[in-house]
Write a protein that binds this DNA or RNA. Structure first.
Lengths: 223, 223, 223, 223
DNA sequence: AGCTAAACGAGACGGTACGTCTGGTCTTCTT
DNA sequence: AAGAAGACCAGACGTACCGTCTCGTTTAGCT
């Protein structure tokens, strides 16, 4: 729900970010096939050769597109990679509300995040998170864009689950809604260990890890 | 304790990893002042201009040293940065056992980690963790070196604290020693949220955050 | 006289060289204002910024015309410049027969050539002659077009002057008409030093230079 | 004679024009083989593909040298071409004093110039003269360098021939030395027609042309 | 008064070369 | 032998124009 709303709000967002042309204009429109070929090529190169193996020239060559076409629409290879996750990540990381018990849902969601991080788009995200440590501009764009949006989706999803969880546990009490600051910290408790494993230890943990973390978070949520 | 032992074992480790020259030799020895100037210059440049602003040529220029001298002793700028944290991090991240209650000690330790991450050597570590996402070689060297060693120190420290905590809570029970796998997960629960804040959200959280996390970990440890 | 004939024959020559449309047609005709704006812009740019400063895009921008409009009517910027001199040069370089003595006429003509070379259209010619050294296609078009035609006009003009000169000198002799090959060489003797000064030495010589050359040519013509 | 003197004065001139290093310096010296490979490649490319076919990248590729090495020593491809003629032209255009009669010597010299212009280095000169019409910087460098120096050599050579010619004609008269300004103009009369043919008409004339011009110049020199 | 075809503006696109930058390696001289 | 100096190959960077190619819009003449 939150997701489809979000999708509505950003449907064309990966297309040129210029505001809709107020005056009618003439001439050819941006080539959608070129755009997709570039995103595809960047993604492939990153998985195949790693971040340093992604070069604008390499993308251009593999996408069958000229360098200038890339520079017309993107400022850097980082911009391109940001677009690829903007295309792929939101649906892969969407909360699927209301399937099974809260515990089941939370475990499923955390597994989904782990699976995503292991997938090609997830590798792109890892690389961008890495580059964000090295480059302030990348950091800002990533955090003000994807990270912030995803965090909002995650907060909404988590709070929904916790509300159901609290309701099921004691449906007579009043304090149904989780306090905002608490939800933030519980989200960190949920995602932190996973990202720590991935970014610091360099491995995507399996279900036994994510399931245990999910259980802990529910325990902590119950005080 | 564990730390000073580690220090003994790695005293010159940041110097060239070649085994000590067995046969006597002639000619000038490696210039220690050059080595320090290089490490210093690399650190300064990273803080001032960020990772991309650190170049071997730039380090050479600022350290008043020739490029070849750097390449003679280090393979890359990453090697240099690895050396700088090997010098600084272990003591900054050492567990100071037995001061106050277990809870106080755990909170203090987590604050110490946060403070370290905000300090110049911590920025170097952040940058290296970032670069490790982009470069397999860096990832291996960092994780097989500093990350592994620090994790061992952290595990030992955490288990000591938990033992004290368990003992204080119920000193009649048998299960004093925390199970290894559980300690690993509790360590992730302790450090994960902090690293997540730093690496993903891009901000070093304050004491209210780290204290809350430390409390949760103790809660979880008590089942 | 010969000139006006030539002008008749090439009046629209700078317009598209396509044969007149046999079938009747509809739609707008070529915009004369666009054509003039382009020629004007090209000329201005060449004088202001030199040959390399003349770009098709620059011409289009300054003329307020689209690139495609230029490429519809000209194949290259060289084509445009060729058109500008085809418009201007023939009259500026015309021989004005029968004013004063042969010597006066010859001197006046050579001064006129020098003046032309110093004028904006003359700079265009210099640039085209320069470019002809670098580009075979330009060389052919320039030499088969303007250069050949101008040479014919010059030969005719010179022979007329020499005929008058010979007649005045010894009007009893038979050999009035100058032999064709000789006239060619005398023309080279007349123009060569001037062009040499301009193209090799890089300066347009003054009247004392051109007058002396003209005198010499008359001397040589008298054997 | 004048030539060998000139050669002495410019022996290393094509090497880096920086003054001899006053302070002793260390490190590798400029690679002479790279320098020669570059000059050679530029010359070849010009003859094979024309001026526009000469690109810095193409030269680098053919010479087996990196672009940076070229840009370290030359500012542009024009600089490289200037060096190639500085290497080749002076000897090809040297006056060989005192062989045969003045007339024979003058004819031989003019033929030599024509032959040079038809040779590969002569094509380079043509191209540079062409480019000098298009680019002020090239013009200055060419004229202040090679053109000026060659003109001095030519003036000396011509004056020597004319002196012999005047002496042979009337060895009792006083006015042996030709006046400077006159020599300049006679040189223009000698070279002008040839360069005019080459640069404007686009063809290198044969001996019948150059011989006739040489004869005329001697005639004019005799008043 | 339409109809229709050309001319035109705007500008996206694949290319090619530019001149700059840094990375690592290697060579030469000095200490 | 270590070190300073710096030449060298390699290759990506981001820019500038090129000449070609759609697109819609505007404008004449012809029905």
């Amino acid at each position: 729900m939150a997701i489809s709303a979000a999708r509505n709000g950003e449907g064309e967002r990966d297309a040129p970010r210029t505001p809709p042309p107020v005056v009618s204009r003439t001439g050819p429109r941006r080539s959608e096939s070129a755009r997709l070929a570039v995103l595809r090529a960047a993604d492939d190169l990153l998985v195949e050769r790693g971040f340093d193996g992604v070069t604008v020239e390499g993308i251009a060559a593999r996408a069958g597109v000229s360098k200038q076409t890339i520079y017309r629409w993107w400022k850097s290879k980082v911009d391109i990679l940001l677009d690829t996750i903007a295309d792929d990540a939101p649906e892969a990381l969407a909360w699927e509300g209301g399937r099974g018990t809260p515990e089941e849902e939370l475990k499923a969601q955390l597994r989904r995040v782990a699976d995503f991080l292991a997938s090609p788009p997830g590798q792109v995200l890892q690389a961008l998170l890495g580059h964000a440590q090295l480059d302030e501009r990348t950091a800002r764009r990533l955090r003000e864009g994807f990270v912030r949006e995803q965090r909002e989706r995650d907060l909404a999803g988590l709070r929904a689950v916790l509300a159901r969880h609290a309701g099921a546990e004691l449906d007579r009490e009043t304090g149904s809604e989780v306090e905002a600051a608490t939800a933030e910290r519980l989200l960190d408790a949920l995602l932190g260990p996973l990202y720590h494993q991935v970014l610091v230890q360099g491995q995507v943990p399996g279900p036994e890890f994510t399931d245990a973390v999910a259980e802990w978070v529910l325990e902590l949520a119950s005080r």
